[in-house]
Design a protein around this nucleic acid. Structure first.
Lengths: 346, 346
DNA sequence: TGTCAACACGAAAACGTTTTCGTAAACTGT
DNA sequence: ACAGTTTACGAAAACGTTTTCGTGTTGACA
């Protein structure tokens, strides 16, 4: 077991100073060709690599990006990470991941843990609990300390930082318009409670589409599901709520769901009620998950391009980190959604 | 913007030495209550936190775990990460993620990048390309440098390190036995080429189950899919191969697929052939993905407990890192699979 | 031979900690 | 009053780099 070798050890072996070794390895002109080659050969033989930690300490840069997301077992978030990682890696950065599990406390702890020198900047999506409590002090403090943040998907206007979002309103509007164009007369939305920013925005898009088509929204067609029900454990409760939606709206012929699980569950309930998709009922979901593609019938969906979101977020952050001048203009990039038509619509 | 404060700055402000500040903050008895309280108050006010990088350099420990996996947009792998993160976090460790994208070169680069001081140890699952080339020098070198590795799922016996695997053979055998018990007479397997270790093992389980039931394996019932076809882009090619499987085996009444996608695709093909599931054809998959649960009919599957695998891997690694005595006995932990019966079997 | 530049290298500081050791000053006991 | 002990603190090393600056040696040139 040969441990990693250091400059000091090379210096001692070759009977020169540490500075000489360092300079030789960096091809400094100060060093004679003789010693330079000697040092380089020795270093190569012992497979010398500079210690990242020492470099980080010296340069006050870690070349590492911190990601804080609510959960990782989720197609969208893993796509985003994948995008971040790709760009980060290409530009010489590593990626360190913290999970908030939608908890405010864990989000704060994770950020504090990483903010003490471990990383150069954050890319994050806010936990639901944080959104509920509307306590954003940990974000402002981090930014005040000079550590840049890029938020994606679940963002909040109170914080002044780079953001990458999708055009939730427009995406939802396009989806609902599609349903209306396809002849749906009674389009319902299955959404979340309003504190989830994206749920709220998508609901807004739904309303705008109705308005544009001169249709009055009906309260009974708007199902705001309590958030607990998103967890896989409460599927039957979710099914029951959706079942009620059908019961209360006999003429329901179109559903726009703000996420994949709601959409798939709606399909399941419809099937139990012997409704034919897309003949009797058309459904559109939101997200670019794996379920939509493989469901039967496959689900028409508003794709968010998670990978692209991640890539863009990483670019923004790294550009910010490597910018010379200190002026930071906070940019908000909108990644366009795309309606992917499959078999759940006509 | 107030930057992070350091010991040195506190020392200067309070007109004491750095050592005094450090000791005061760590409640050393060497320091009088007077100065101790003064320093602590000051530190608290300025929200002092020790710099992680400096600590890492001093302690030669980063309290960070490196994860290298083939891809992250995958239910199983994200479950594993989730498990690792949970345990790591609880024990005061962070998690840094590198993706190999199944490429040997990227796996090597990622490991080299992290091995130079950034992390204390690795948890990884081997890239397919690495498995093909059977070049494991980067693993042995890392271990020789005194950096522990824990492998999971895709492991290789040539490397001597802790491993966490599932009982692939037994899990497959249980699944196939289930099909046979349920009355299937012609059970096919859809698997990968043999260099993917888990594919090979699961095929072995299939064969053992047949043997135990005194059934001779038929070559035409064993479909070894070329690996390229796992990518989402080649779904139709995959469908065609499976379609051929049906064509060549008219009496096919059971399918065991070594992953979720193969199983779902088989269901899709079966549907097109107007086969009823589970009446005409029973299907069992392998993995604990989200597709199985929400497919229609829902898919009976061999669950691998990805979360548990991650937790166990993290425990093994951290225990190893924090062990006093240097003797490392390489442990291989087997996480039992579980057959989750759903609607694709009788 | 004396002066100066070029050359080749080393010493030391800096990044932010922790910890060992040394030492004044104050206190103890007789 | 004096030796010995405790108290309270500071200096410095160490972790592994990079970089600035200083310096001894060499060679050239007048």
């Amino acid at each position: 077991m040969k441990k990693k070798i250091t400059l000091k050890q090379i210096a001692r072996e070759l009977d020169v100073s540490i500075s000489t070794v360092s300079k030789a390895l960096r091809n400094s002109v100060e060093i004679s060709e003789d010693t330079r080659l000697k040092v380089q050969a020795f270093a190569k033989f012992y497979n010398y690599r500079p210690n990242n930690i020492a470099l980080s300490l010296k340069n006050r840069k870690t070349k590492t990006i911190g990601i804080i997301i609510p959960e990782i077992v989720h197609h969208f978030f893993s796509k985003v990470i994948s995008g971040i990682e790709a760009v980060a890696n290409k530009r010489g950065y590593n990626v360190i991941v913290g999970l908030s599990n939608e908890s405010f406390a864990k989000e704060v702890i994770n950020m504090e843990m990483l903010a003490n020198g471990s990383i150069d900047g954050f890319i994050l999506s806010i936990a639901k609990e944080t959104l509920q409590q509307q306590d954003y002090h940990h974000f402002t403090e981090t930014i005040n300390q000079g550590m840049p943040i890029v938020m994606f998907d679940r963002v909040v206007k109170e914080i002044n930082c780079d953001k990458v979002i999708v055009d939730d309103v427009l995406g939802a509007k396009k989806a609902v318009s599609k349903l209306l164009d396809n002849g749906c007369k009674n389009v319902a939305i299955i959404t979340t409670k309003d504190y989830v920013s994206v749920g709220k925005l998508r609901t807004q898009g739904y309303l705008e589409a109705l308005e544009e088509n001169k249709i009055n929204p009906k309260a009974s067609l708007i199902l705001k599901v309590d958030d607990e029900l998103l967890s896989e454990d409460h599927l039957d409760a979710l099914e029951k709520e959706i079942d009620n939606l059908f019961k209360n709206n006999k003429k329901l012929d179109g559903i726009f769901a703000v996420n994949e699980l709601y959409a798939i569950t709606a399909m399941k309930v419809a099937r139990k009620l012997s409704l034919k998709i897309p003949e009797d009922l058309q459904i559109i979901g939101f997200t670019d998950g794996v379920l939509s593609k493989h469901a039967v019938p496959s689900l028409t969906t508003v794709s968010q391009h998670g990978q692209k979101i991640g890539e863009k977020a990483a670019e923004l952050l790294i550009n910010n980190l490597e910018r010379e001048d200190e002026e930071d203009v906070c940019e908000t990039v909108i990644i366009e959604t795309e309606l992917i038509e499959r078999d759940s619509t006509k």
